[in-house]
Design a protein around this nucleic acid. Structure first.
Lengths: 222, 222
DNA sequence: TAGATTGTTAATCGATTAACAATC
DNA sequence: TAGATTGTTAATCGATTAACAATC
């Protein structure tokens, strides 16, 4: 049965889940064991009502009169996001973007481990980048079939990105993390999350410009 | 006069602006000179109504009966985002995150040029990373005062990020691009855009897990 | 117990979509 | 002109906020 789109959680809520997780980790490190929706809201710049609403869309995690247990809630949200286990990733494209991702710290400590890079360039194959071996891109499908890889990171030239995604569609991979700044069409049953860093910079530029426009009292439309 | 929050464009719309720009660039490369809201919507997975609505919040760029001029619209959206000029950036923190950003291609071709990295480590000061000089972090404020730097990229250890942001608040810098996975409090008059890559990975993990949960027919709440 | 705080429903707000007159 | 497509207002949809009974 094809899942209805309405079964999926709203994007706005999904973006808040990692923020909850991060905040709860910080509270845990501070040694706090309980927190109310009101205090959590204050720290995160949300409303208490929204937090209770968000959490209750996954279940009742709190105790009336007391609030939420920090460790228990963190663990529950970890279960919901399925990050209380290790995920393995491969990076397709060992150029500058792929190298930057391979060298990026923080993924590993969050439990996302890069096991291999793939490239077509014979000068790169056999080398290591950030301690991770670069393999022949021809062997990608075989590698994915033989290993329990969870996530494919796309870091190819723009011209190759859709084709790479289509290839991945033929494997058991169901998650793709795309760094290439183009609009991709995901194969059936594959989740694609885009990281468009240049878009993020443009949004920053817009907000800076918007501030000027507002301060000058000029509306956007004449 | 303090700008009302309501003067600011909705976040959902701001996230679509770079996507419009990117799509129009692709159309331009394909040699198309006109496009209707209907065809643009089809390519982008939006509705024609939404596109007209979005564009009209900045002005009337189309011609009834004809559609939109690709080049003209791209240029107009570029003006709105203020990306029809070069932006200069400095990166604070020349560790692994800062290096990855400094080595990342694509920013430069989008007109965002990194002019310097800053670090406190004497072993790094004086070196170059991705062709960009690493300067002494003590000289950051002076550098910002003397140059026309537009954007500060924060890539410090988590413990230093808020302090770095507070320092920046005392300069003429009004845009900060933060790669550190903590919740920062922006000084008055400074726009902060966060790039939380680990959050993005967690959202991917959630969506993959959600697919399983839906397919198994298990609701999130019992 | 009394005070506190959740879980949950109803009210509000804002964003998206539909509709159509204006006009190229 | 007739057909096409915008600009713009009204209707709808969905997300956020408010309110309060349940209960720790």
């Amino acid at each position: 049965m094809q899942a209805k789109k309405s079964d999926r959680m709203p994007e706005t809520l999904v973006r808040r889940l990692p923020a909850y997780y991060r905040q709860l980790s910080e509270l845990e490190q501070e040694g706090l064991t309980e927190i109310s929706s009101f205090k959590l809201a204050e720290r995160m710049g949300l409303t208490d009502s929204q937090i209770r609403h968000d959490l209750n869309s996954f279940g009742g995690f709190g105790q009336r009169g007391l609030g939420y247990r920090v460790g228990m809630l963190k663990n529950s949200i970890g279960d919901i996001m399925d990050i209380n286990r290790e995920h393995s990733m491969v990076i397709v494209g060992a150029g500058r973007i792929g190298s930057a991702v391979a060298n990026y710290p923080g993924f590993k400590e969050a439990g996302f481990v890069v096991t291999a890079l793939f490239d077509i360039d014979p000068k790169l194959i056999g080398k290591k980048i950030g301690g991770i071996p670069v393999l022949d891109a021809k062997k990608l499908q075989k590698y994915l079939a033989e290993t329990g890889t969870d996530i494919v990171v796309i870091a190819t030239p723009a011209s190759e990105a859709q084709q790479t995604l289509d290839h991945v569609g033929g494997t058991k991979i169901r998650g793709v993390w795309n760094f290439v700044p183009i609009t991709l069409t995901p194969p059936e049953g594959v989740v694609v999350i885009n990281v468009h860093l240049t878009d993020s910079l443009m949004a920053l530029s817009f907000r800076m410009h918007e501030m000027d426009v507002i301060n000058e009292g000029h509306p956007w439309t004449k």
